[in-house]
Write a protein that binds this DNA or RNA. Structure first.
Lengths: 153, 153
DNA sequence: GAGATTTCATCAGCACACTGACTATCGCTG
DNA sequence: CAGCGATAGTCAGTGTGCTGATGAAATCTC
């Protein structure tokens, strides 16, 4: 008798939004490479030679998930993974030539997909939309790690 | 060399948002009952006697996932699941007394959590935020089902 | 320099989420 | 009423995402 209206729950809307994205990604970008896989690949194109921890930080994924995703990408020969000779704990990652090719292709398609996904919003609304999500997500992430992020020079 | 800025990708932000939510939910609402489980329970409090397909429609989950979630909820005795005597295909679902109790308790906590999650936004920004997400999600869902949703009287 | 602590990766376990294939049942139509 | 198509649910398979435990390597400390 006292059910709640889920459209006022940001968590529920976040799930629906991600679902919507998943749908569009599959249809317009790739059925092979998923969006998190693309994100990992992207991070390694920006900074080749990162280790798994570093990738997880950039992409906001935990250790286990990074290991899974990296495993799939190396199995498809989109990534190289070698032990760091200077630090036996680390695994250094870098994209292969094929990985770079795939990334380039998907970048174009992802841009098209973003356009479609944001089509219902006017131009000013889009930047507003992205900004609002980011603020909420950032705040929650800061709640977890109470690190001093005061100034990042 | 041509990496992309993921903060302009709504899909990536959607994932981070859901992650943020997951974090807060675990900390402030429940470690036992997940947010999708709560959503299913909520739908059945609003409309007891729904079948799984109906629940999936309300909560926006596919058949398989609904089956999983319903399975966990019935195993915890929060839901009753009986075969529809009038239609042998259907399974009719309704919350147990315990299910209603849990729902009531979690409703209060979820409201507190929403408050915390939206804390970084001003009041007008909050409604704007929820509205924008909903519009984007709705549009994508309409892309999938090109049903005539013109007028819902 | 040996021992304690920290750090990176892996693994097991659980939950969500989708697709595609299969089963059972219902409803319609000839 | 027999058969055919549509519908509800299940199952198998894959991928994301988390926690908590474990192992291995580096760093810090005495």
């Amino acid at each position: 008798m006292t059910a709640v209206d889920l459209t006022t729950h940001p968590g529920h809307l976040a799930r629906r939004l991600q679902q919507a994205h998943h749908l569009l990604w599959n249809a317009m970008v790739s059925e092979e490479i998923t969006s998190p896989q693309f994100a990992v690949l992207n991070a390694l194109i920006a900074e080749p030679g990162l280790d798994q921890r570093g990738v997880g930080e950039r992409v906001r994924l935990d250790r286990s998930t990074v290991a899974d995703v990296v495993g799939r990408l190396t199995r498809r020969d989109l990534l190289d993974k070698v032990r760091d000779p200077h630090d036996g704990r680390r695994a250094l990652l870098r994209p292969t030539a094929e990985g770079r090719r795939v990334h380039r292709r998907l970048t174009v398609r992802a841009a098209r997909m973003n356009e479609v996904m944001l089509a219902p919003l006017a131009d000013e609304e889009r930047t507003l939309f992205l900004g609002l999500i980011q603020r909420v997500a950032d705040a929650a992430e800061r709640l977890r790690d109470p690190l001093a992020e005061t100034v990042t020079p």
